[in-house]
């Protein structure tokens, strides 16, 4: 157990000089970033700039080539670290939901509670129902993923991550696969989460959401962070041409 003072001062995620190669292609070219507790950071950038790769390095879905990543007081790039322990506390929501199609909404939420946290069925079920209620899906607990809309599936995926009681949530373009009318429901859930004090790193193209909810906006291009600051600073007064270019295209 770390002391209260320490953990409140310590960043939840700290990335130091992160490099990532795919073969000979350098996708991340030295990224440094710190995310403090309760902070909502949104990452923007053109396609192929390395946003997903950066996010996926944080829970080691991609193995960094160089650099260090710290989660609280654990260095996750240290080979001796049990990454599964870390992942329990790092929630991730994917663009493609990645729900387990053979399990109901409730079953999806319960699985890791039972198998990873070794909770009893009753306990897991109670947590699952509570989390599904939080994302507004109490009445869909018994539905199979194939019986749910994309927006509902994504909210189940969020509930599934939240049930593990994560210290930080990673969102990778979680609304870009959704029909426009379904986006709002998912963003509402994320907004609520942010207001509840969850530490979040959000890769998104939803500029409205980024502006409203984020404490900090980070603009990435070609594997480096080009500029970062408050949403107002980045969106309204971008310093770099590349940022201006990008925002010009998007807005």
């Amino acid at each position: 157990m770390t002391s209260m003072i320490n953990s409140s001062e310590q960043p939840v995620v700290r990335i130091i000089d992160l490099h990532k190669y795919f073969g000979s292609l350098e996708v991340l070219k030295g990224v440094d970033i710190e995310v403090s507790r309760g902070e909502v950071v949104t990452i923007l950038g053109p396609s192929g700039s390395g946003k997903s790769t950066l996010l996926r390095c944080i829970n080691l879905l991609e193995k960094p080539t160089e650099g260090e990543i710290w989660f609280e007081d654990t260095c996750i790039t240290d080979p001796k670290t049990n990454i599964n322990k870390v992942r329990e506390h790092v929630g991730m929501v994917f663009q493609s939901f990645n729900l387990f199609p053979h399990l109901s909404a409730k079953g999806n939420v319960m699985l890791a509670l039972r198998k990873v946290q070794k909770r009893s069925r009753e306990e897991a079920e109670a947590i699952a129902l509570e989390q599904l209620a939080k994302v507004g899906l109490s009445d869909r607990a018994e539905y199979m993923p194939s019986q749910l809309s994309g927006g509902q599936q994504q909210r189940v995926a969020i509930a599934r991550s939240l049930a593990m009681d994560p210290h930080v949530m990673l969102f990778d373009e979680v609304t870009s696969a959704l029909d426009p009318e379904l986006v709002r429901g998912v963003l509402d859930v994320m907004r609520q989460l942010a207001q509840g004090g969850m530490t979040m790193i959000v890769v998104t193209h939803e500029m409205g959401f980024a502006r409203d909810v984020a404490d900090r906006a980070v603009f990435m291009d070609e594997g480096v962070i080009v500029e970062q600051g408050t949403p107002e600073a980045v969106f309204d007064h971008p310093k770099h041409d590349r940022t201006k270019d990008f925002l010009g295209h998007i807005i």
Binding site: L61, N84, S96, N98, F100, L111, A112, K115, S161
Partner: peptide, 21 residues
């Protein structure tokens, strides 16, 4: 789909748990 492996991994499930469940 590899998303199933990644979804499981992101929840802290180890490879054996992922395979069987």
């Amino acid at each position: 789909h590899k998303g199933q492996f990644e979804g499981s991994a992101s929840l802290g499930m180890n490879p054996v748990q992922t395979m069987f469940h």
